[in-house]
Amino acid sequence: MRKSWWKIACVVLLVYTVIGGLLFRVPAREILGETIRNLYFHVAMWTVMFTLFTVSVVYGLKYLRTQNLRDDIYAVNFAKTGIVFGVLGYSTGFMWASYTWTEYATNTQIFKEPKLLGTAIALLIYFAYMVLRGSIPDLDKRAKISAVYSIFAYAMLFPTLYILPRMMESLHPGSQGNPALNPNDSDPRMQMVMLPAFVGWTLLGVWIATLKVRLDLIKEKSILNA
């Protein structure tokens, strides 16, 4: 275990998240009820995904400057782990919505929900990133093209996840002046778990991504040293 202090911090924060997230008191709200605790789980998945995609695009840019294949390995593995967390966030959101939104929204409203569509588009753009990589056998060409593509993919992430859903009629919190994650608006009792939860889950995502990176670095050792 290299540099293990942050991994220990990850474990401690996640244990705290599970205990505090399920047992501490939360504000009682209509419709949401106890599912308000999903803030520590569902929303945390998106913070992890954003962090990992940001790291990925930084390494993509770094690759374009240095042409070092090591940076490409970092970029792709952070993006892959980010996709996993994105899919987890999407499916937990689906689960959550199917028990809360259905109480007062019609099916048509849910199918037209811009947040769901936007997120699906954003994830598909990242799936295409993997398809694009898989289709190019030449290592340097693959790294270069996918680094450029990942910049565009990242640029689409914020409009599809945040800007577009806020401009349209949406059921999701955070739209139409209905704030999500506004620090002045969230309950202090929830913030006590929310911030440690975000950090803990993010560390877990980074941990998994670095494991994948290290494995790939070993696998590609002969190419990297050539």
């Binding site: 991994k7 494991l211 494995l215 070993i218």
Partner: peptide, 14 residues
């Protein structure tokens, strides 16, 4: 997490 720790150890060994 235990599974991750074991994986981490295996990769370190490699």
């Amino acid at each position: 997490i235990c599974y991750l720790v074991r994986l981490d150890g295996k990769i370190s060994k490699l």
